[in-house]
Design a binder for these strands. Sequence first.
DNA 1: CTAATATAACTGATATACAAGATATATGAA
DNA 2: TTCATATATCTTGTATATCAGTTATATTAG
Lengths: 269, 269
Amino acid sequence: MLKISSDWLMDTETPEKANQPIKKRAQNAAPSGAARFHGSAATTLSDVQYLRLHAAIVSMDMVPGTPISEKRIALEQGVSRTPIREAILRLTRENLVEVVAKSGTFVARIPISALPEALIARRALEGMTSRSAAMCASRSQVLQLHAVIERQREMAELNDTKGFHLADDDFHAMVASIGKLPGLWRLVQQVKLQVDRFRHLTLPEDGRMAMVVKEHASVVAAIEQGDEDLACRNMEAHLSGLQHHFSHWVDTHPEYFIHDIDLDDISKI
Amino acid sequence: MLKISSDWLMDTETPEKANQPIKKRAQNAAPSGAARFHGSAATTLSDVQYLRLHAAIVSMDMVPGTPISEKRIALEQGVSRTPIREAILRLTRENLVEVVAKSGTFVARIPISALPEALIARRALEGMTSRSAAMCASRSQVLQLHAVIERQREMAELNDTKGFHLADDDFHAMVASIGKLPGLWRLVQQVKLQVDRFRHLTLPEDGRMAMVVKEHASVVAAIEQGDEDLACRNMEAHLSGLQHHFSHWVDTHPEYFIHDIDLDDISKI
DNA sequence: CTAATATAACTGATATACAAGATATATGAA
DNA sequence: TTCATATATCTTGTATATCAGTTATATTAG
């Protein structure tokens, strides 16, 4: 039979396959993987543990500095250390935990320097998504945006901060989606992680939630008109409404932060 | 002696520590970790393997579709599967490999949809870094920029594409650093991964390298004048000079790509 | 009592072993 | 030959064992 496209690059083993019965499996050059389409919800233990820890850290249920022991969590969760370790490695890459070899692993403190930069990145990225959304949005999509804003308004009236923030994320995700830039939203999600932790330290002040709804509405209005520049400006203005309270929050919980810059000298807005 | 701030949150084990000789180690609440400061170059095996594979994939030494076997690489490298596996997990998060459980792992194909989005994200982020650099740059920093550009010019004359691209990265990193937004450069690096792979498929066309040097110079000129808007515009213009050849390259190596969008209808530039 | 030292227990990093599933080839029937 | 089935072998996921380095505590010298 055909001998298959003999061995890929960088495969230098057994150049002469000579006598042995050739148990070698044919190289499947591309992911033929039928397995991926069985929607088996193939959620692995690592994923479960990752999501669990991720949620706990971002929600500040586990505050910065909390020691994490692979062994202990493994016992608590009734799994081996391997999935826990893999989850922790992922969190390390996101700067949500810091691990010191042979010593200990801890919930990471929030690097203050990351906060203004995160805001700047968000403004740059979401300025672009809203601009693009203003160009692309269909009437039905605009209605969807109105619906999300209305839901957020309800959450604000109920004082349901959790639901409010979920609707907030939905709004921003939808703008990116309408602008056909879902990848940018994924970037934003990654960037705003530390800010989200930050935000969980305190409740929104009175009127803040209503203000946010209003600002969202102004963004949608611009999108509805197809005014790209205005949409971008309104979104940027909306996102600038956060850093006012940075220094206050940092003062109340200094031990949660890495004081790698002085928050006062961030003239850059 | 003082009983230490008895057990942190979510620590529910042995509420009564009663009789046993209490081998329990005091909880060190914060990373006291003296270990981190010994600059022991604590490069772990996982890191080594990660960097190795990362470089091989981005440089297209390992082309999309190449099968990866944890076991085989472990044997080749003379380490156990564990570090290899951890490296692969990192690469998975970067969309550089795709792993199908119980089946196989492969060098990921390049999602075409990621390319225009990456360019858009880069423009948004680096428009901001150059804008900020124009505000912050000192005279000495401007000279450093000139030096990098000169080095890049030399590389172009020598036709050393590898050195050219290294200098290119250095330039963009330096702009971000001068603008006091190093985090944005890290984001850009992450975003441009797939584009870099793409670029390795072909050599720069004649005159392209000289053109890049010229565009860099125009960015520096704007920074030198402290003209934020011009710096931003020049950087954006510079970054727009890539997507012209997308479709051509995709046609020559269709098997390297995930054709999740049609490259023709990207009017958004 | 204080400070330096020794030791024991705990940590993450790595190696190895086992389990569950997927794929390729061999085998057999039409 | 062609198609279906069975089995052997390979894959990644998970569990366990070992290694090497760190830290807390006990110990000891002053």
